Amino acid sequence: MQNLNALNLSHNLLTGSNNLQGPLPVPPLGTVNYLASNNSLTGEIPSWICNLNILESLVLSHNNLSGLLPQCLGNFSDELSVLDLQGNNFFGTIPNTFFKESRLGVIDLSHNLFEGRIPRSLINCSKLEFLGLGNYQISDTFPSWLGTLPKLNVLILRSNIFYGVIEEPRTGCGFSKLRIIDLSNNRFSGNLPSKSFLCWNAMKIVNASELRYLQDVLSSYGQVTNNVLSTYD
């Protein structure tokens, strides 16, 4: 399969010799899209993932994968635009290795067992539109620094251990493109900053013909759309 550039094993009930209940199948090095969501795959993400240096989409959501994420995650491919690992049993901290000029537009790590803080290197992902970090054990203050990401549309932080006061923006507004934010089921205190709501103009209905919803935000990212929508719509 030397010329294979896409491997899609999602949504299967394969049995016998093709049973998708074991470790991740090894794809050819030229694979561009690796999609294996909604199976019963187990084990850790193996080290060979770091060799897929032209990969554009890595979608392993809704499996039984576990272990630590490899340190190369976020910097092994200059082409990676979709990273969807939601609905597994990954633990530990999220690697702080997202590199400058990253093409990542969708990162969804929700519904895992991660701990620690949000990796500050996410600030390098200037093309990021969707960030899903809900439903695990992040312990951190509100990540106001994410407000500098120029294209961030959706920010999911629900069901974690975020704490403290969400402070008023000191300079400017931040989150200029934000349309959806979920902070529910955390430990924030104090009042919600009124200035933020006044500033978040992308949430306001100005011209109904220009409205964009979650489907539109993710439509350019292909196969990952249905997985994300099923969780957040």
Rank of each mutant, 00 (worst) to 15 (best):
Y213C: 00
F188A: 02
K127W: 06
F90E: 03
R212M: 14
P95S: 12
V82C: 11
S102Q: 03
F130M: 04
G116L: 13
F142D: 03
N75G: 10
D182N: 15
P95R: 11
G87M: 07
L218Q: 04
N191W: 01
P169N: 04
T97N: 15
L83C: 09
L85Y: 02
K127M: 12
G134S: 14
R170V: 10
L109I: 14
S81G: 00
E129C: 05
R212T: 12
Y213F: 15
V82N: 04
G190W: 00
K177M: 14
F99Q: 06
F76H: 08
L122G: 04
I205Y: 10
K151S: 13
N75R: 09
S209Y: 05
G164S: 07
N88S: 06
Q137R: 14
N185S: 14
S176F: 09
K127H: 12
F76R: 04
S102I: 02
N191L: 07
L214R: 03
S220F: 07
L109G: 12
P150W: 14
N75E: 10
S194G: 05
N96R: 02
Q86E: 15
Y221E: 08
N75F: 01
P150C: 12
G147A: 11
K127S: 12
P95D: 08
K177S: 15
L80S: 04
F197P: 02
L152Y: 05
S126E: 15
T171I: 10
G87Y: 05
E101H: 13
S209C: 10
P169H: 02
K204W: 11
E129S: 12
Q86R: 14
I181C: 08
N185V: 08
C173Q: 06
W145Y: 13
I123N: 05
L178F: 03
C173H: 04
N112Q: 13
V154E: 05
S81W: 10
D108K: 02
N186I: 07
I156H: 08
T93H: 06
N160T: 08
N88R: 01
E101K: 13
W145F: 14
A208G: 08
I166Y: 00
I118E: 06
L85T: 04
V82A: 10
K195T: 11
S209N: 09
D140M: 03
R120D: 08
L152P: 03
W200D: 12
K195H: 03
L80G: 00
F188H: 02
N88I: 07
V106K: 00
L128A: 10
W145D: 09
P143V: 06
K100W: 10
F98Y: 09
E129W: 07
Q137Y: 15
Q86S: 15
K100V: 06
N135I: 13
G105F: 14
D78C: 00
I123V: 12
G134W: 03
L113I: 07
L155D: 00
